[in-house]
């Protein structure tokens, strides 16, 4: 009786263990690949590679948060042992550079250079604002303005009398 009980116990233990082992081994790499890919369907830039239950994520994520999210999603898939997250984060699309305004002393020197060949034109600089006075032929105005616009002024007040 006792002997039989132990035999039964041993047998059921083995059955249980083998079942447990089987269920562990049961999710194949290709299944994991499929399930992780489905979870990450919303992130087309991310590629999934699975080897022996270890998921490697590669590709490009839009930001750190979505990179972390990919990893969490992949970890939640059944059968995944661990996740190697090789995703890179794309820098935000050419961040808008702040407007640079030349300091007055540099601007004054450069404005002087720019108007040198435009006889009759006077310029003053105050707080980055270039004010033009005097007279100029209209057909030369574009050249003068092109020149002054490269100097990073705050604005240009054109009070020239055009001829």
């Amino acid at each position: 009786m006792n002997k039989n009980f132990f035999r039964l116990l041993t047998l059921s233990c083995i059955t249980f263990l083998s079942l447990a082992l089987y269920s562990c081994k049961g999710v194949s790499d290709s299944d994991i690949q499929k399930n992780v890919s489905e979870k990450l369907a919303g992130m087309p830039g991310v590629m999934v590679d699975v080897k022996n239950g270890v998921v490697t994520l590669s590709g490009v994520c839009s930001d750190e948060a979505s990179k972390a999210n990919c990893e969490t999603q992949a970890k939640s898939v059944k059968g995944v042992k661990s996740v190697i997250n090789n995703c890179t984060v794309t820098p935000p699309p050419t961040a808008t550079a702040p407007v640079t305004i030349s300091p007055d002393d540099a601007l004054t020197t450069n404005v002087k250079d720019a108007i040198k060949d435009f006889t009759g034109v006077n310029a003053t600089v105050a707080d980055g604002v270039v004010t033009l006075t005097g007279t100029l032929k209209r057909d030369r105005l574009k050249n003068l303005m092109q020149s002054l616009n490269t100097l990073k002024p705050k604005k240009i007040n054109n009070q020239l009398t055009l001829q």
Binding site: R138, L141, K142, M145, Q146, N149, T150, K152, P153, K154, K155, I156, N157, N158, L162
Partner: peptide
């Protein structure tokens, strides 16, 4: 671009654009 600028703001009088 400068010709279009001049068309929108004749003789560049408005002082509201710095085009570098």
């Amino acid at each position: 671009l400068w010709n279009i600028y001049n068309k929108i703001d004749p003789d560049y009088r408005a002082g509201d654009l710095v085009m570098n």
